[in-house]
Design a protein around this nucleic acid. Structure first.
Lengths: 154, 154
DNA sequence: TCTTTCGTGTCAGTTTTCTGACATCGAGAA
DNA sequence: TTCTCGATGTCAGAAAACTGACACGAAAGA
């Protein structure tokens, strides 16, 4: 549809553009978070916990787009550093809820300043309407990609 | 601007949505390429070489959004499998251009079918106009993120 | 009740990617 | 020419992520 040729035109492909934008965002966020000794996944975990306290390891993994095994080692680091707590008493079945500590909240606050400046820079030149349109388009893409039964024009 | 609160609203954040969309795309592409024994970086490398024959290791790395060290190990695998060639005679200075072999072209053709179906599925429900708008918005974001001097409203 | 199914936490090993470092080569300035 | 600077290819080690596997517990169905 987009091009009858043999390959996928990287200059025009929305998939490639999406990956390029995501890569640029990741690079910018890593640069902003490095002075704080934090990685993007690090920050994502803390931000998720701030907005939804008590999230489990698996839920955090899904929210940060990594496997639960990867999130588990990250949580061990965060717990060792005193940024989060996972009191064994709160266990519900196998699920072990996680909470931010005061130190974790402080570190998150500093990181949020850095991340917010990156996000603001990314939106430079985009009107509020364009941002709204972008949200709708991205949500549509995500829904289509996750729907295995979507018609693909076969 | 988007929210005066302490954190960044993940439900609304374009940065989070961008990461989410990119993750969904990567998952879908990996699922589509797995039967072919190919990863996304694998495919990206071949597609780049098809469109711009003779690309160097560093140029391929930039195009696939990985370090040149990572691309180097990938190229060694591709060369061992006979998908690409890097004849030492073509060396210009330190730069060693890479070319697709016939086998590489065949493997790429099969992969392109799989990837194209994923991209088509991603665009399900998006009009041509919306796709064009999305391209413009993503390009704007990329440019802003890469411009270190962009005003951020501090 | 019993059973099956699914999600979860966790252990182990492997793979991939990255950071750091070095020598080399070409382009441009002095 | 000579020198500096930037980019490249490459080696080595470290960090991050993944896949595979297992046992446990809860929820749903027979």
């Amino acid at each position: 549809m987009s091009r009858g040729g043999p390959g996928i035109d990287l200059e025009t492909s929305l998939g490639y553009l999406l990956k390029e934008a995501s890569s640029a965002l990741r690079v910018a966020m890593e640069a902003a978070l490095r002075p704080l000794g934090m990685t993007v996944t690090h920050y994502s975990c803390l931000e998720l916990l701030a907005q939804r306290p008590g999230l489990s390891n698996s839920e955090l993994a899904r929210g940060a787009f990594v496997t639960r095994q990867s999130m588990n080692v990250l949580l061990q680091t965060l717990e060792r550093d005193g940024d989060v707590t996972r009191p064994a008493e709160d266990r519900v079945g196998k699920v072990l809820p996680t909470q931010l500590t005061a130190r974790g909240r402080e570190r998150l606050a500093a990181a949020t300043v850095a991340v917010r400046s990156v996000e603001t820079r990314m939106l430079t030149g985009l009107s509020v309407e364009e941002q709204s349109v972008a949200r709708g388009i991205l949500r549509g893409m995500i829904a289509s990609l996750r729907d295995p039964g979507a018609r693909v024009g076969g």
